[in-house]
Structures are given as structure tokens and as C-alpha cells.
Amino acid sequence: MNRTLRRTALQDSSRLLMGLRQNLRPIESIRSSPSLLQIYTSCRQSSSQSSSSQPEPFGSSTLWPVARIYIVGSLVYMIFHWIWWKLESDEIEEKLSDRVANLEQELESLLEERSLARSQSTSGYVSRITSLLHKLVFW
């Protein structure tokens, strides 16, 4: 009976110690857990090791800079093209407005000459007709 008591006492004490150990494990894990700095450095080292071991996809490092240069270059080209077009269209418009003004002056002078010629020719024409009529009537 003594032996059985000892066994049960030992079993009870071992169970008690096991329970205490299980309850103390979270505290021990907090104490032994790595700091954030250690985690960050280990992640950084593992990412640098994994990136150096794997080849980069084609153009992954140069695609965005090339695209940016293409976009900026296209934008600059379009701006300069618009400026050039605007200046040229202003110059053409000025030339055409000068030409229109010259043609209007020429047209006005021609109309004045025509009206003068008509007035002179109609008065001469009327006088000829009247003279012919007088000759016919009073012959």
C-alpha cells in the first residue's frame, strides 16, 4: 500500500508539474521570441537571397523607366507640334487676310472704273440714239 501511495503521489506531483509547465510555456515563448529587428533582418536576408537566386523577368527593371521616357517624349513632341502648327496657321492667316484686302481694293477700283465707263458710255449711247431718231423723224 505504501508503494501505491507513493506512485499516486508521484503521479499527482508529475501531473501538477506538467500542468505548471504547460501554463509557463507562453511566458517562456515570449521571453525567447526574437525581437522585431531580428525578424526584419532575417526576412530581408531571406528575400535578398531568394531574389538573387531567381532570375528577374525580362524588362521588369527597365519597363517603367522606358515607358515614362516614351510618354514624356510624346507629350513634349505634341506640345511642340501644336506650337509650330499655331504659329504657321497664324502666318498663313495673316498672308490670306492681306491678299483678301488687296483683292477687295482691286475689286472696288474696278467697280468704280466700270461705273464711270457706264455713265460715260450710256450718256454717249443715249445721245447717239437721240440724234438718229431726230434724223429719222425730221428728215
Results as ranks from 00 to 15, higher is better:
residue 67 A to S: 11
residue 3 R to F: 04
residue 39 I to E: 08
residue 45 Q to C: 09
residue 50 S to Y: 08
residue 69 I to Q: 12
residue 49 Q to A: 15
residue 119 S to T: 14
residue 136 L to Y: 04
residue 28 E to H: 01
residue 24 L to S: 10
residue 63 L to R: 02
residue 41 T to N: 09
residue 77 Y to W: 13
residue 105 Q to N: 07
residue 37 L to S: 07
residue 108 E to V: 10
residue 49 Q to V: 15
residue 130 T to C: 08
residue 13 S to G: 05
residue 107 L to S: 04
residue 128 R to G: 10
residue 36 L to Y: 02
residue 44 R to V: 09
residue 25 R to M: 06
residue 26 P to M: 00
residue 5 L to I: 09
residue 89 S to K: 15
residue 69 I to A: 15
residue 138 F to W: 03
residue 16 L to I: 07
residue 135 K to C: 10
residue 66 V to Q: 12
residue 2 N to P: 12
residue 136 L to A: 14
residue 70 Y to V: 15
residue 110 L to M: 04
residue 107 L to M: 06
residue 115 S to W: 02
residue 62 T to Q: 03
residue 37 L to Q: 06
residue 115 S to R: 06
residue 45 Q to M: 09
residue 34 P to G: 05
residue 103 L to Q: 05
residue 67 A to C: 09
residue 73 G to F: 01
residue 16 L to C: 02
residue 13 S to W: 01
residue 36 L to K: 01
residue 47 S to E: 10
residue 90 D to R: 09
residue 6 R to V: 14
residue 59 G to K: 01
residue 90 D to P: 07
residue 139 W to D: 13
residue 91 E to S: 13
residue 5 L to Y: 03
residue 67 A to N: 06
residue 36 L to G: 05
residue 77 Y to I: 14
residue 93 E to Y: 03
residue 87 L to K: 11
residue 59 G to D: 00
residue 131 S to Q: 13
residue 65 P to F: 00
residue 108 E to N: 08
residue 61 S to W: 01
residue 12 D to C: 11
residue 124 G to W: 01
residue 28 E to F: 04
residue 1 M to W: 08
residue 100 V to D: 00
residue 9 A to W: 00
residue 44 R to A: 14
residue 58 F to I: 12
residue 50 S to K: 15
residue 43 C to L: 13
residue 125 Y to E: 13
